[in-house]
């Protein structure tokens, strides 16, 4: 499969996935996928349920290791370095921001939620943390709504605010890559649009992997889009081509146009 890149994103691959296979016990969840992710692009990842999208994200930040019977073959390189050989796995996870489908407000205050990762990384000074917390909440378009009540529990926020809080939290360790896993599932359309605006501005600072159940969201945001189906990468190309009248694969056309899935 040939990939090309347009829309002004640079051609340096930040993630190189080569022949990645993941088994859960006997079940093959990813059936040997290969693709690159380029610096400062938004890569949309679409596909129906059970197609391996979430598994892919878990491989990249190495949280799949917590699933007891999961086995990984093939390689994933981050900045040219094979992630399975990185010894500081906690450092690796801090290079990658992760936003889960349902907002997980840790049972901590808003402030502590955002300061969580910097603290685990060893930042202790209050003034430094204050700066980080404000910056991240600003970036996630949440600062104006919560600046008066940073010490209330994060779980008391509305669903949409909580999701922006998790984005702020994912940004708190200044990741190179931001992975969003179907972030709009629990969020109303207005908040979704706000978060999408946020993502557009973040593109200049980092690479974004956007797993989404909303095909149109990929169309709106992504430079390139990858279509996964049953653990196979069916097609990856510029979003324009994927959403055009003639993508390389018929299945892509059918899915994008809502014929199935």
């Amino acid at each position: 499969m040939k990939t090309n890149s347009q829309n002004g994103s640079q051609m340096t691959p930040i993630i190189e996935v080569t022949d990645l296979r993941v088994h859960y016990g006997d079940k093959l969840a990813l059936k040997g996928v290969s693709f690159d992710v380029y610096q400062n692009e938004i890569l949309g990842i679409i596909g129906p349920a059970q197609s391996g999208k979430t598994t892919l994200l878990k491989v990249i930040n190495r949280t799949l290791e917590f699933t007891p019977d999961a086995t990984i073959e093939g390689s994933v390189k981050l900045d040219g370095e094979d992630i399975s050989t990185i010894s500081d796995v906690y450092g690796l996870r801090r290079r990658i921001g992760m936003v889960q489908p349902l907002p997980v407000g840790l049972p901590l205050s808003i402030y502590d939620n955002v300061a969580f990762a910097p603290r685990t990384a060893g930042i202790r000074s209050k003034s430094e943390l204050d700066v980080i917390v404000e910056r991240c909440l600003q970036q996630a378009a949440l600062w104006e709504e919560v600046k008066e009540r940073l010490n209330t529990l994060g779980t008391q926020l509305s669903g949409g605010q909580q999701q922006r809080l998790t984005i702020a939290r994912a940004l708190s360790h200044q990741p190179e890559i931001l992975c969003l896993d179907e972030f709009s599932i629990a969020v109303d359309p207005v908040t979704t649009m706000r978060i999408e605006e946020v993502l557009k501005t973040l593109r200049t600072e980092m690479t974004i992997l956007l797993v989404t159940n909303l095909v149109q969201q990929a169309k709106r945001l992504a430079n390139r889009t990858a279509f996964f189906l049953n653990g196979d990468l069916i097609e990856i190309d510029t979003t324009d081509i994927i959403f055009s009248e003639n993508p390389a694969e018929q299945a892509t056309y059918d899915y994008v146009n809502g014929t199935f899935g």
Partner: peptide, 11 residues
């Protein structure tokens, strides 16, 4: 999900 979220933050 709490464990996963915290672990994804590098804890």
């Amino acid at each position: 999900s709490y464990r996963e979220a915290a672990e994804a933050l590098g804890a």
